[in-house]
Amino acid sequence: MLKLRKLVSAIACLLLAACSANQPTIDESIQSFAGGMPADLSGSWERDYSRSDDIQGVLNSTLRRIYRPQPDSGYPAASQDLSKVVALARFAELITRPDVLTITQDDFEIKVARKDDFTMLCEFYDGYAKRTESEFGAEVCSWNGHQLVSYLVLPDGLLVSHRFTMSGDEQSLHVATTISSSASRVPFTVNRVYMRFEPPESDFNCVETLSMKRVCSTGEITP
Protein backbone atom coordinates (compact mmCIF):
# COMPACT_ATOMS: atom_id res chain seq x y z
CA MET A 1 0.00 0.00 0.00
CA LEU A 2 2.87 2.31 0.89
CA LYS A 3 4.53 1.54 -2.41
CA LEU A 4 1.35 2.30 -4.28
CA ARG A 5 1.11 5.60 -2.45
CA LYS A 6 4.70 6.35 -3.39
CA LEU A 7 3.97 5.62 -7.01
CA VAL A 8 0.83 7.73 -7.07
CA SER A 9 2.72 10.51 -5.36
CA ALA A 10 5.53 10.29 -7.92
CA ILE A 11 3.09 10.53 -10.80
CA ALA A 12 1.15 13.31 -9.12
CA CYS A 13 4.33 15.27 -8.48
CA LEU A 14 5.43 14.87 -12.05
CA LEU A 15 2.08 15.96 -13.38
CA LEU A 16 1.97 18.84 -10.95
CA ALA A 17 5.44 19.94 -11.99
CA ALA A 18 4.38 19.58 -15.59
CA CYS A 19 1.22 21.64 -15.17
CA SER A 20 2.80 24.34 -13.06
CA ALA A 21 5.48 25.00 -15.63
CA ASN A 22 3.23 24.59 -18.63
CA GLN A 23 5.16 21.38 -19.13
CA PRO A 24 4.64 18.93 -21.94
CA THR A 25 3.03 15.97 -20.23
CA ILE A 26 4.60 12.54 -20.09
CA ASP A 27 2.55 10.43 -22.42
CA GLU A 28 2.98 7.18 -20.50
CA SER A 29 2.07 6.15 -17.03
CA ILE A 30 4.94 5.08 -14.86
CA GLN A 31 4.69 1.39 -14.98
CA SER A 32 5.67 -1.12 -12.42
CA PHE A 33 7.06 -4.56 -13.00
CA ALA A 34 7.28 -7.72 -11.01
CA GLY A 35 10.49 -9.68 -10.40
CA GLY A 36 13.73 -8.54 -11.99
CA MET A 37 14.17 -5.74 -14.48
CA PRO A 38 12.56 -6.56 -17.85
CA ALA A 39 15.86 -6.23 -19.73
CA ASP A 40 19.55 -6.07 -18.98
CA LEU A 41 21.04 -3.17 -20.89
CA SER A 42 24.39 -3.25 -19.16
CA GLY A 43 27.52 -3.08 -21.24
CA SER A 44 29.54 -0.75 -23.43
CA TRP A 45 27.86 0.63 -26.51
CA GLU A 46 29.39 2.63 -29.37
CA ARG A 47 27.49 4.60 -31.90
CA ASP A 48 26.79 3.11 -35.33
CA TYR A 49 26.80 6.21 -37.51
CA SER A 50 25.45 4.37 -40.54
CA ARG A 51 22.23 3.51 -38.71
CA SER A 52 21.81 6.73 -36.75
CA ASP A 53 19.80 9.77 -37.79
CA ASP A 54 21.45 12.74 -39.39
CA ILE A 55 20.22 15.73 -37.40
CA GLN A 56 20.03 18.00 -40.43
CA GLY A 57 17.88 15.46 -42.24
CA VAL A 58 15.50 15.12 -39.29
CA LEU A 59 15.32 18.91 -38.95
CA ASN A 60 14.52 19.35 -42.63
CA SER A 61 11.70 16.83 -42.53
CA THR A 62 10.34 18.40 -39.32
CA LEU A 63 10.38 21.84 -40.90
CA ARG A 64 8.69 20.53 -44.03
CA ARG A 65 5.96 19.16 -41.81
CA ILE A 66 5.57 22.49 -40.03
CA TYR A 67 5.46 24.48 -43.24
CA ARG A 68 2.95 22.23 -44.86
CA PRO A 69 -0.28 24.25 -45.17
CA GLN A 70 -2.61 23.47 -42.32
CA PRO A 71 -5.82 21.66 -43.38
CA ASP A 72 -8.05 24.00 -41.38
CA SER A 73 -6.58 27.36 -42.43
CA GLY A 74 -4.60 26.58 -45.54
CA TYR A 75 -1.68 28.51 -43.99
CA PRO A 76 1.55 27.06 -42.63
CA ALA A 77 2.17 26.94 -38.88
CA ALA A 78 3.43 30.09 -37.19
CA SER A 79 6.90 31.06 -38.33
CA GLN A 80 8.07 31.48 -34.73
CA ASP A 81 8.03 27.69 -34.48
CA LEU A 82 10.98 27.65 -36.83
CA SER A 83 13.50 29.10 -34.39
CA LYS A 84 12.10 26.96 -31.60
CA VAL A 85 12.40 23.75 -33.58
CA VAL A 86 15.91 24.67 -34.66
CA ALA A 87 16.72 25.24 -30.98
CA LEU A 88 15.38 21.81 -30.10
CA ALA A 89 17.40 20.26 -32.94
CA ARG A 90 20.62 21.96 -31.83
CA PHE A 91 20.02 20.81 -28.29
CA ALA A 92 19.20 17.28 -29.42
CA GLU A 93 22.45 17.19 -31.35
CA LEU A 94 24.35 18.35 -28.28
CA ILE A 95 22.98 15.80 -25.86
CA THR A 96 23.15 12.88 -28.26
CA ARG A 97 26.73 13.65 -29.23
CA PRO A 98 28.50 11.05 -27.04
CA ASP A 99 29.83 8.17 -29.14
CA VAL A 100 29.95 5.74 -26.28
CA LEU A 101 27.39 4.83 -23.65
CA THR A 102 28.45 2.78 -20.66
CA ILE A 103 25.49 1.22 -18.95
CA THR A 104 25.65 -0.42 -15.55
CA GLN A 105 22.68 -2.14 -14.05
CA ASP A 106 21.89 -3.92 -10.82
CA ASP A 107 18.66 -4.95 -9.13
CA PHE A 108 17.75 -1.37 -8.29
CA GLU A 109 19.52 1.01 -10.59
CA ILE A 110 20.44 1.61 -14.18
CA LYS A 111 23.14 4.14 -14.88
CA VAL A 112 23.94 5.42 -18.34
CA ALA A 113 27.34 7.10 -18.33
CA ARG A 114 28.08 9.51 -21.15
CA LYS A 115 31.21 11.49 -21.82
CA ASP A 116 30.96 15.21 -20.99
CA ASP A 117 27.50 14.81 -19.55
CA PHE A 118 25.93 13.62 -16.33
CA THR A 119 25.15 9.96 -15.83
CA MET A 120 21.51 9.23 -16.44
CA LEU A 121 20.03 7.46 -13.45
CA CYS A 122 17.03 5.18 -13.28
CA GLU A 123 16.02 3.86 -9.88
CA PHE A 124 13.52 1.09 -9.30
CA TYR A 125 12.64 -0.31 -5.91
CA ASP A 126 10.37 -3.32 -5.67
CA GLY A 127 9.42 -2.76 -9.26
CA TYR A 128 8.46 0.88 -8.82
CA ALA A 129 10.23 3.82 -10.35
CA LYS A 130 11.73 6.40 -8.04
CA ARG A 131 12.35 9.99 -8.99
CA THR A 132 15.73 11.62 -8.73
CA GLU A 133 15.07 15.27 -8.22
CA SER A 134 16.63 18.54 -7.29
CA GLU A 135 15.58 22.14 -7.50
CA PHE A 136 16.87 22.13 -11.07
CA GLY A 137 14.80 19.27 -12.44
CA ALA A 138 13.77 15.67 -12.00
CA GLU A 139 14.51 12.33 -13.62
CA VAL A 140 12.27 9.33 -13.61
CA CYS A 141 12.20 6.19 -15.69
CA SER A 142 9.70 3.59 -16.69
CA TRP A 143 9.66 0.28 -18.45
CA ASN A 144 7.40 -0.10 -21.42
CA GLY A 145 7.67 -3.81 -22.04
CA HIS A 146 11.36 -4.30 -22.67
CA GLN A 147 11.92 -0.66 -23.49
CA LEU A 148 13.43 1.57 -20.86
CA VAL A 149 12.25 5.15 -21.01
CA SER A 150 14.05 7.88 -19.13
CA TYR A 151 12.39 11.26 -18.61
CA LEU A 152 14.11 14.44 -17.59
CA VAL A 153 11.73 17.19 -16.57
CA LEU A 154 13.31 20.65 -16.56
CA PRO A 155 11.89 24.09 -15.79
CA ASP A 156 10.35 26.25 -18.53
CA GLY A 157 8.34 23.34 -19.84
CA LEU A 158 11.21 21.23 -21.09
CA LEU A 159 11.04 17.48 -21.28
CA VAL A 160 13.83 15.23 -22.52
CA SER A 161 13.07 11.57 -22.99
CA HIS A 162 15.30 8.71 -24.06
CA ARG A 163 13.76 5.45 -25.13
CA PHE A 164 16.20 2.53 -25.03
CA THR A 165 15.37 -0.56 -27.06
CA MET A 166 17.75 -3.48 -27.29
CA SER A 167 17.69 -5.74 -30.31
CA GLY A 168 16.67 -9.38 -29.96
CA ASP A 169 20.27 -10.55 -30.24
CA GLU A 170 21.26 -7.95 -27.61
CA GLN A 171 23.99 -6.63 -29.86
CA SER A 172 22.50 -3.28 -30.74
CA LEU A 173 20.74 -0.60 -28.79
CA HIS A 174 18.35 1.88 -30.33
CA VAL A 175 17.97 5.16 -28.46
CA ALA A 176 15.21 7.54 -29.48
CA THR A 177 15.70 10.95 -27.88
CA THR A 178 12.77 13.34 -27.88
CA ILE A 179 12.93 16.93 -26.76
CA SER A 180 9.67 18.71 -26.07
CA SER A 181 9.21 22.28 -25.05
CA SER A 182 6.12 24.17 -24.07
CA ALA A 183 7.46 26.94 -26.30
CA SER A 184 7.20 24.75 -29.36
CA ARG A 185 4.21 22.82 -30.58
CA VAL A 186 6.44 20.30 -32.31
CA PRO A 187 8.73 17.95 -30.42
CA PHE A 188 12.01 16.91 -31.95
CA THR A 189 13.09 13.28 -32.05
CA VAL A 190 16.45 11.91 -33.06
CA ASN A 191 17.33 8.22 -33.30
CA ARG A 192 20.75 6.83 -32.48
CA VAL A 193 21.88 3.25 -32.82
CA TYR A 194 24.70 1.81 -30.73
CA MET A 195 26.54 -1.48 -31.11
CA ARG A 196 27.76 -3.54 -28.19
CA PHE A 197 31.53 -3.65 -27.85
CA GLU A 198 34.09 -4.94 -25.40
CA PRO A 199 36.35 -2.15 -24.22
CA PRO A 200 40.01 -3.12 -24.52
CA GLU A 201 41.59 -4.30 -21.31
CA SER A 202 43.87 -1.78 -19.73
CA ASP A 203 47.47 -2.61 -18.87
CA PHE A 204 46.81 -0.99 -15.54
CA ASN A 205 44.64 -1.96 -12.64
CA CYS A 206 43.17 1.15 -11.12
CA VAL A 207 41.17 1.94 -8.04
CA GLU A 208 39.62 5.16 -6.80
CA THR A 209 40.75 6.35 -3.41
CA LEU A 210 39.85 9.41 -1.45
CA SER A 211 43.27 10.67 -0.44
CA MET A 212 45.27 9.69 -3.53
CA LYS A 213 42.50 9.90 -6.11
CA ARG A 214 42.93 7.28 -8.82
CA VAL A 215 45.64 4.79 -8.00
CA CYS A 216 46.90 2.55 -10.78
CA SER A 217 49.31 -0.32 -10.86
CA THR A 218 50.51 -2.84 -13.38
CA GLY A 219 50.17 -5.53 -10.75
CA GLU A 220 47.32 -6.78 -8.62
CA ILE A 221 45.57 -4.00 -6.78
CA THR A 222 43.29 -4.55 -3.84
CA PRO A 223 40.48 -2.07 -3.53
Binding site: A87, P155, D156, L158, S181
Partner: peptide
Protein backbone atom coordinates in the same frame (compact mmCIF):
# COMPACT_ATOMS: atom_id res chain seq x y z
CA UNK B 1 12.36 27.98 -25.83
CA UNK B 2 15.53 29.42 -27.38
CA UNK B 3 18.64 27.27 -27.64
CA UNK B 4 20.36 29.39 -24.99
CA UNK B 5 17.35 29.08 -22.70
CA UNK B 6 17.17 25.30 -23.09
CA UNK B 7 20.91 24.96 -22.63
CA UNK B 8 20.87 27.07 -19.50
CA UNK B 9 18.25 24.86 -17.86
CA UNK B 10 19.98 21.69 -18.90
CA UNK B 11 23.40 22.86 -17.73
CA UNK B 12 22.06 23.75 -14.29
CA UNK B 13 20.68 20.27 -13.88
CA UNK B 14 23.81 18.70 -15.33
CA UNK B 15 26.15 20.50 -12.93
CA UNK B 16 24.00 19.57 -10.00
CA UNK B 17 23.94 15.90 -10.98
Amino acid sequence: GSYEGILERYEQYKWDR
